[in-house]
Design a protein around this nucleic acid. Structure first.
Ligand SMILES: [Mn+2]
Ligand SMILES: [Mn+2]
Ligand SMILES: [Zn+2]
Ligand SMILES: [Zn+2]
Lengths: 149, 149
DNA sequence: TGGTAACTGAAAGTGATTTTCACTTGGGTC
DNA sequence: GACCCAAGTGAAAATCACTTTCAGTTACCA
């Protein structure tokens, strides 16, 4: 039996959900798999379509509910693009950020914190004590650079 | 005649719009004023309500259209909060960021660039060349700190 | 003081998301 | 393996967040 990367990730996710008291159901598996296979942020409608390839009667409402749950436990992350936050990528729990290719939308996650590295004197200048941040990067991925932008 | 800060800002904004070829109309003034007086991000519906205090028959559609225009010229900025990007604050044109108080939502703008200050080696680690970023900070403002969080 | 393109609000249209509810099912219990 | 039942599900309807259309109004320039 051959395990793909996606299969391994799905195993881990299902274990995590079970550990948190969530049931692992066929509809949820279909959403999880669609999310794990994607290389770019997908809208709810896209995830619904892809999820149906695995589980034909998957309901759109279930996709919404599953994404909400995955976001809550840190396995999915909402991506801001085009003035809205309507697409999702797989994610690892904990603090991290994403960078999305402006050509192909391929999205990667990275950590290693950063905004401790803010403008010196920001707290003095603004009067705010910084307690958190939200950051998303845009860039050009390696393969898009190779193929001439 | 006494000029408030809001009145001065509005003068400047109206001049800027005129300079760009936009007409300065009563509905637009009402939206501008609602935005200039706010200390926190406001939803379109909130701006509509506040705008009506000044111009009673202000249409919701005009609020949408005015915000779109203000965003285009850099005088308004969409704020990401609570999984959506549906509220707006006044803004100055050019690259800058905001910090929002987690208690009272009061929002300030700051510049001085930052994300040149990203994790060292990010481009090598991820393979992406960074070309842009979206950053919003959360914190506690001075007055909320003073009044015991 | 017109003339007119820009602008406006109401109403209708659209797409995204949430709510409701009767039915199904995962996973623990015996 | 059969049973139980709270958790989960999908269809339909309701709600929300815009966007489009269109007939009228108005800012601003000649
Ligand atoms: Mn960070
Ligand atoms: Mn910046
Ligand atoms: Zn790319
Ligand atoms: Zn505050």
């Amino acid at each position: 039996m051959i395990f793909t990367w996606v299969a391994i990730v799905l195993q881990a996710w299902e274990g995590k959900l079970r550990g948190l008291g969530y049931r692992v159901t066929a509809p949820r598996r279909a959403v999880l798999r669609a999310l794990a296979r994607a290389h770019r942020p997908l809208s709810v409608a896209e995830l619904h379509k892809r999820g149906r390839a695995q589980y034909a009667c998957l309901g759109l409402v279930t996709v919404y509910r599953t994404l909400q749950m995955l976001e809550r436990v840190g396995l999915a992350r909402r991506i801001h693009a085009g003035g809205a936050c309507r697409s999702f990528v797989a994610s690892t729990p904990g603090h991290s950020h994403t960078i999305t290719c402006e050509h192909c939308e391929k999205t990667a996650e990275f950590d290693g914190d950063d905004v401790c590295l803010l403008p010196a004197g920001l707290e003095e200048r603004t009067g705010y004590r910084v307690s958190g941040h939200w950051l998303q990067l845009v860039g050009v991925c390696r393969s898009c650079r190779a193929s001439g932008d």
